[in-house]
């Protein structure tokens, strides 16, 4: 029913094949990239399908707005080349099943705040920054009704997303919301990138948390006291689906007087937190994930970061502790902004 709109002709005319040549995990030269992308388009086996660590980055690398990563995942599913062991896939698919009652649908006037599946983050959404936003649901028993499902891109399971997403959109729309601020990049990416790519109608406007925070901080500018911290930012995989919003990271840092340290693995070169790679089937994945984390964290430290800023709870869970062990404080972006306006954080 929902089909990926992928324009093959763009690939055939593509001169750079950036999607694969820029990939930080597969070392692919331009000639090989041309061959492999064709294989993938033609539903043929390609080593890319086996070796992809599902970092989402090629969605950003593609200069034409084609959807190479969605295509890769679709082919992984069609050819049964799954990145994770079977029990993790079975368990993962079931994680998204709501099992504690129906959502409590209340009409929301004005802009809403969607936490997606992370109802536990409700404690982060206090204070002046979030005044005027209505929390759609912070009930941990109901959170799966708001789960955007995009996680299944790591599981080689486009079909699960496509089966469930319409219902999730319906649930959000039932609140009669016109504008939704998504706390997590993954939700924002779902409604602004994945949904149009597969033909899902989304009857509300999505706002990225960072754009919202930036605008709100501007309104509260007189209350900002520059933080004077050196910060690194851990970019989540799903932010690759909304690279136009990445600019707000620096805009926020500038506004609150945080110095974004210069380092190697930043922006387009950002490294995955390693959370999903840890469990992948490919030989040596766990060690690879640890090495990757070390490379990333050492880089932050070398650059002199005092704080590592997160937006994704999964990244926080994966490398929050190792970052702290290296003497950098792990902090959510929203908390950093709250600190800047003199609020106590969670």
């Amino acid at each position: 029913m929902f089909q990926l709109k992928f324009d093959e002709t763009k690939c055939f005319a593509c001169e750079t094949n950036d999607c694969l040549t820029k990939c930080q995990y597969l070392k692919i030269d331009p000639d090989t990239a041309k061959i492999e992308i064709k294989k993938i388009i033609n539903k043929k086996d390609s080593f890319v399908l086996h070796e992809c660590v599902t970092c989402y980055a090629c969605e950003e690398y593609c200069p034409t707005g084609n959807h190479p990563f969605y295509l890769i995942v679709q082919r992984q599913e069609e050819l049964n080349i799954l990145p994770l062991p079977d029990p993790l896939i079975k368990r993962g698919i079931r994680i998204g099943i709501p099992f504690r009652g129906e959502p409590d649908i209340q009409e929301i006037k004005g802009p809403a705040l969607n936490l997606g599946v992370f109802s536990s983050l409700a404690t982060l959404t206090r204070g002046k920054l979030f005044e005027g936003l209505t929390l759609m649901s912070a009930d941990s028993r109901k959170m799966f009704h708001y789960f955007c499902q995009l996680m299944y891109l790591h599981f080689g399971r486009i079909s699960v997303i496509n089966e469930r997403l319409e219902k999730i959109i319906e649930t959000i729309a039932a609140h009669k919301v016109k504008e939704v601020v998504h706390f997590h990049d993954e939700c924002y990416g779902t409604y602004t990138s994945y949904a149009p790519a597969f033909g899902f109608a989304v009857p509300f406007k999505s706002i990225h948390l960072f754009e919202y925070l930036y605008n709100r901080l501007k309104e509260l500018k007189s209350e900002i006291k520059p933080l004077n911290f050196k910060v690194a930012y851990q970019r989540p995989c799903s932010s690759r689906l909304s690279s136009d919003k990445y600019q707000f990271v620096d805009k926020i840092f500038d506004l609150i007087g945080a110095e974004h340290v210069k380092r190697e693995y930043v922006g387009e070169n950002a490294l995955c937190c390693g959370g999903t790679i840890l469990g992948q089937k490919k030989k040596g994945s766990r060690q690879f994930s640890l090495d990757l984390q070390k490379k990333n964290i050492d880089d932050m430290q070398r650059a002199g970061a005092q704080i590592c800023v997160f937006n994704c709870p999964a990244c926080m869970q994966t490398i929050g502790k190792p970052v702290a062990k290296k003497g950098m404080m792990p902090v959510f972006m929203s908390d950093l902004c709250r600190l800047a306006i003199g609020e106590k954080t969670s």
Partner: peptide
């Protein structure tokens, strides 16, 4: 534990590291 005894289950897809 994980790279030794459990590796073969991970690679043949019958077992996996469940969480961080």
């Amino acid at each position: 534990l994980l790279d030794g005894k459990l590796a073969r289950y991970i690679q043949d897809g019958t077992g996996g590291i469940g969480a961080v």
